[in-house]
Design a binder for these strands. Structure first.
Lengths: 181, 181
DNA sequence: TATTATATGTAGCGATCGCTACACAATTAT
DNA sequence: ATAATTGTGTAGCGATCGCTACATATAATA
């Protein structure tokens, strides 16, 4: 009797792909159904409503993100090295869709959508925890503050990236170098 | 025969207020019309379509932002002082709506809406120019890179703020202090 | 004053949205 | 084999969206 459950999982995978590729603004039930290769009617057979579907897909996305960051784990780097490294990761076509989607979720979560807010917060935590683990510090009490600072800065760069502000990003990274000279 | 033009300006003011107060997601023609105290039919009498209306309102908003930042001009501050100062400004109820709206515009501009993209880029430039002017540097070649870095960091804090991540913001500011000790 | 242009209201079109009612086939359980 | 449960398709509801046709009132111009 688990055939339904298997199908459900398959659908969730496809919806997650679609969300990462196209963002939340293309996420009407009919479009999502097309992406999953079925009718909207069937989507609502597997999921009680759109919100539950989105929640499931966003949870899968966060799980994928965890796996990906786990795979990208590297030896600890000190702040001035870590930041340009992260800026490079930001352009990685495997990671970039997560950042874009996350930006959209943050913006949406200011409003109503409960699923978006929860997902946005969870993705924030995932990124921050990873950043905390990968930062090399001289004294442990520096870890959390510097990780938070690196996180905030990278987010700012993500925002600039969404606005095609490449030169500003380069300038900011230049600023990091200057600061730690 | 300028009565129409006067009315137009009045409408633009009210729409701008509404956008700052409620964001872009509540910006259907009918809602905007209610905010302007008229019917949607009349809105489309004064403006050829929704896009033109939004563009006009967003332009007014950027003008207001310029005036506000001009008023908030302060003597130049060095980076480690400027950043917490900006973080404080971020919570100012006069400025916060601009930041929230700007975040939403950036997210929207990744997609289609032309008006949003243009407005988002312009607001970015306004903030960055102001940041550049208000930063105190020891050598002039530091100005642009450090302003860009400060800008990116503040934007990251805006993002965190939209997610109710107050403690992360505090940590990040603590990180700034540590870095410049 | 007569004519023309501008201002405002009512109603609704066609598209899309999330979602549901109804019908029927396929599978499973008894 | 019969009954009950589960899967799938068609059609459409009511709401909202941006926008428009049509009508009339008001004002500007001749």
């Amino acid at each position: 009797m688990k055939k339904t459950e298997i199908k459900r999982q398959l659908v969730i995978e496809k919806i997650a792909d679609h969300l990462l590729a196209n963002g939340m603004k293309e996420a009407s039930l009919r479009r999502l159904a097309a992406a999953a290769g079925m009718s909207d009617r069937m989507l609502l057979h597997y999921f009680v409503n759109k919100d539950e579907l989105l929640t499931a897909a966003l949870i899968l996305i966060t799980e994928r993100l965890i796996v990906m960051l786990e795979g990208a784990r590297l030896e600890q780097l000190p702040y001035p090295i870590l930041l340009p490294h992260l800026a490079g990761m930001m352009k990685n076509p495997q990671i970039r869709p997560f950042l874009r989607l996350w930006l959209e979720l943050v913006s949406l979560s200011s409003g109503a959508e409960a699923a978006c807010h929860a997902a946005a917060q969870q993705i924030r935590d995932i990124f921050f925890d990873w950043m905390t683990a990968v930062l090399k510090v001289e004294r442990e009490e520096e870890r959390k503050p510097l990780a938070a600072l690196a996180f905030a800065t990278i987010e700012g760069l993500v925002l600039l990236d969404a606005l095609d502000s490449g030169s500003l990003i380069e300038s900011a990274l230049e600023g990091v170098k200057m600061q730690n000279r």
